[in-house]
């Protein structure tokens, strides 16, 4: 199994589901950054990022979300983070990001938040 994988899927017009699996670190973050940039380039700024199968995140990985959430919100969108494991969630806590990001427990609630 690869150490890192991303799958994307359009779940509704203008809303993209991005599933991130494995280890998101200084070696792999550019791939996710590129995926998010491609969504923005296609005019999609509402993203549901599934972190449920993410085993590990470092500051380089969290930096992808920090660096892109502003662009999403400036374009009437957002990045909703879905179901991170306790370990991954803790890194967001340590970085003081839980006030900045919205977390959801399932896709339907994430979509509802994006459609508000």
């Amino acid at each position: 199994m690869p150490d890192f994988a991303i799958e994307t899927q359009q779940i509704k017009p203008g809303i993209r589901f991005v599933a991130v699996r494995g280890f998101l670190d200084a070696h792999t973050y550019e791939e996710l950054d590129k995926t998010i940039s491609e969504c923005f380039d296609q005019g999609v700024h509402k993203l549901v990022v599934d972190l449920s199968r993410l085993d590990y995140i470092s500051s380089a990985g969290a930096g992808v979300f920090i660096g892109n959430i502003g662009t999403a919100q400036d374009n009437d969108g957002n990045i909703i983070l879905l179901n991170p494991s306790q370990n991954v969630r803790e890194i967001f806590d340590l970085l003081g990001l839980t006030q900045i990001f919205t977390f959801a427990q399932d896709v339907d609630s994430a979509v509802r938040l994006l459609e508000k």
Partner: peptide, 16 residues
């Protein structure tokens, strides 16, 4: 962190 997000900066959090 609020400034960090506003500026779209992706790096510089490792030491912190």
């Amino acid at each position: 962190m609020t400034e960090h997000v506003k500026s779209g900066k992706k790096k510089g959090l490792g030491i912190f």
